[in-house]
Design a protein around this nucleic acid. Structure first.
Length: 271
DNA sequence: AGTGCGGCCTGTCCGC
DNA sequence: TGCGGACAGGCCGCAC
């Protein structure tokens, strides 16, 4: 589910409720997520204050004076702030009980998400060390994409999904950005010129920013920390719109399988 | 090195 | 109404 805009929406939503809060307890009802929730988390975190809530790609980081909680929402995860007395529902796997009386609650039906704990520099953590630049940061620019794509035969959509090249972009926003840039998602990345990469970088930034402003995309069950859904799906141009009309030229939007996940595009507007 | 695929899970939807 | 199968927003780890 959650791509960068949903994770950022979550970060902004939980931050006011968790910053400066002391973690009183960690309740793990289901430790079997993508990786087991480390037992050291419940042992070491209580008594420490959450000093920052950061995001790196699709990872959320809760900083304390002795270590960092690394959270990933996988495909179906979400975080909510609720009173700690509120009974957990079926897929509510982990609670961080806070000094305010609230708790930060992770729900994740498919359990592709993760809750990890590291006492070292989190950017050196195996999962974070090799992530590419933030798409909204200065390192992600046309020259970077152009250089990194020379000689690559992979479809540009797949390159955008590769977290080692750029962080946080998933299938929805890759498809939307490629439509906005007028680039065929199937095109070999090595056969796209500098000028078109300039357009693509702008399209990625614009798409992600407007999705964050809209509170993310709610296709099934995504919601922010206070339970509000996102609204970006209302403005999506191609994703999930197979057989509908292209909003720019009225051509029928096509979908096809590409390496396991579908691409959506307009054959007239995207070359 | 770059590429493509299997696998981890549950829920939903579609066709029969 | 029930059931099997395909599919879904991610991404690591592996084989080639």
């Amino acid at each position: 589910m959650p791509e960068l805009p949903e994770v950022e929406t979550t970060r902004r939503g939980i931050a006011p409720y968790v910053l400066r809060q002391v973690v009183r307890a960690v309740v793990v009802r289901q430790p079997q997520l993508r990786w087991p929730v480390p037992t050291t988390l419940a042992r070491e975190l209580p008594g420490h204050t959450i000093e920052a809530v950061d995001r790196r790609g699709k990872y959320l980081l809760l900083a304390t004076d002795i270590g960092h909680v690394i959270l990933h929402l996988g495909m179906s995860g979400s975080l909510r702030v609720v009173p700690h007395t509120q009974p957990p529902e079926k897929h509510d796997h982990v609670d961080l009980v806070l000094s305010s009386g609230n708790c930060l609650r992770l729900r994740d039906p498919r359990r592709f998400g993760a809750v990890l704990w590291t006492r070292k520099d989190p950017t050196k953590h195996k999962l974070l060390a090799n992530i590419g630049p933030e798409p909204l940061g200065p390192e992600f620019n046309a020259n970077y994409l152009y250089e990194r794509s020379r000689g690559r035969k992979r479809a540009i959509r797949d390159l955008l999904l590769d977290g080692r090249l750029v962080a946080g972009i998933g299938n929805i926003y890759a498809n939307e950005a490629l439509f906005a840039a007028g680039i065929d998602p199937r095109r070999a990345a090595g056969r796209i010129g500098r000028e078109r990469y300039r357009r693509l970088v702008e399209a990625v930034r614009t798409t992600l920013r407007s999705a964050i402003t809209a509170g993310g995309t709610t296709l099934r069950d995504f919601h922010g920390a206070t339970g509000d859904p996102g609204y970006f799906q209302l403005t999506m141009k191609v994703y999930g719109r197979e057989d509908e009309h292209c909003p720019r030229c009225q051509q029928t939007i096509r979908a096809q399988a590409l390496g396991g996940r579908r691409v959506f595009f307009c054959v007239r507007c995207q070359l």
